[in-house]
Design a protein around this nucleic acid. Sequence first.
RNA 1: GGCGCAUUCGUCUAGGGGCCUAGGACGCCGCCCUCUCACGGCGGUAACACGGGUUCAAAUCCCGUAUGCGCUACCA
Length: 490
Amino acid sequence: MARERRDITGPVRVRFAPSPTGSLHVGGARAALFNWLLARNTGGTFVLRLEDTDRERSTPESEAEILRALGWLGLDWDEGPLRQSERGDVYAAAVDRLRATGAVYAAWETDEELDAQRAAARADKRAPVVRGRRDWPAEDIARFEAEGRRPVWRFAVPLPGETVIEDYVRGTVTFGHDNIEDFVVARSDGTPTYNLAAAVDDLEMGITHVVRGEDHISNTPKQVLVMRALGGDVPGYAHMPLILGPDKKRLSKRHGAASVEDLQADGFLPRAAVNALALLGWSFDDKTTMFTVDELIEKFSITRVSKSPAVFDLTKLRVINGRHLRLIPTDEFAELLLEWLRATGYLEGKGPEAEDLVRRTAPLVKRKLSTFADYDELAGWLFRPLHIEEEAWEVVTRDVKHSIQVIGGGLGRLEALPEWTLDAIKDALQDQLHILGEAAKDFLEPQRIAITGQTVSTGIYESLELLGREEALRRYRSAMARLAEIWATA
RNA sequence: GGCGCAUUCGUCUAGGGGCCUAGGACGCCGCCCUCUCACGGCGGUAACACGGGUUCAAAUCCCGUAUGCGCUACCA
């Protein structure tokens, strides 16, 4: 429910900060989009930062894929990409400053001690938080060091106290410090953890607004604490509702088509993907569902972002995609289709005429496609030798006599055609249809199957024209022969 | 277990006390258009989680309960 909410006004400095541990998922893409829209509509700056402090899981391949996916969506960044892995000295300096002010302390607890502390708190029905000992005797520390142990550095969460976030989406969210543990800011090897690095970067980069998924909300007080300890201006926060799969769990790979890469492979248009992504947790009004990218830039507002999670619906995406497809001029549509077919290898080994064939079928399929991936179902038969699908042939053989009459009738008229043009084909078949007194559907269906092998295809007249006289007549005759054989043995 | 967040048709949502016998979109069903499938048009199906308050009046405000989800690492 939209309450009275503060709006984010510009010019903002916002960032998208994925960790390169996989492909760009729908949730991440939406976060990138919202930040980008905010930057573009306030004349602000969109910064890209790679959070690759986890060296184990971060890969260059993933990084490249994320950049590529952002490019495909058309989300260009103004600064970056910055890599946290290259900013070790920045974080080290920050930790030094925190050390100097006593905001962090060396913690020597072993994993076992930590586990015990958490278990005890849990048994006590308290928050399972860790508080390290801050007053180790010097001789203990000397012993630890002699043993080769290195401490982690924990943030000394001030007690008692609370941290309040004024979230643009959620309103006031309060976290009692009792429930925030003394989180680690620097690992025993000296490298920074996420909460330290993110806070330092947001501060250093002058980020004015952090717009990210709700899964980060419990990190926010920790980052705010770090920023305050560092003496900086805390940015505004907006936590977007999560994106769910059909099972209401956080959308993930196992839900399928959950990454931008998948959407591209499945034949979606970037503009439609952006449109649909924008509608995940945001709405402009009670009815508008079609937006151009420019309209989104103009109309997007954080005040209209929903608080509750949204289930990602591929069907709806397909509908939106189909509508965008139909808005594209046919020439451009043909080129985009061709581009996608080439990229997916569909045209490989199909000969030099294939591209021309695609161009000629483009106007025929434009109104019918939801995504480019539907192309094969409608027009794929044109690129292959005739193969009559079993269930289609069943339709034809259900009434053999009728099919012979109809296909034979069509064949007779087409054979006599002086010229093989769309109009001539159409006139001839329609004339025959009237002579036989058939319903158009009954008359044309067997012929469709005879020439395309399918019950669903491009329009029958257009299909015949595209096939060419010779091949079309060959297919008619072949069907007639098969039917005659069945008739004879019956 | 703790903390946090959320809860309107199957789904996405509109909704800021009377305009709501709750609107739109997708899906689904039916009809029309029609050479199939689509597209397009028309119509229909379907929801305020529950219980208490506050108020002349609550989907809207408050409290509680339930349910769901997120977080709960030397991951991000």
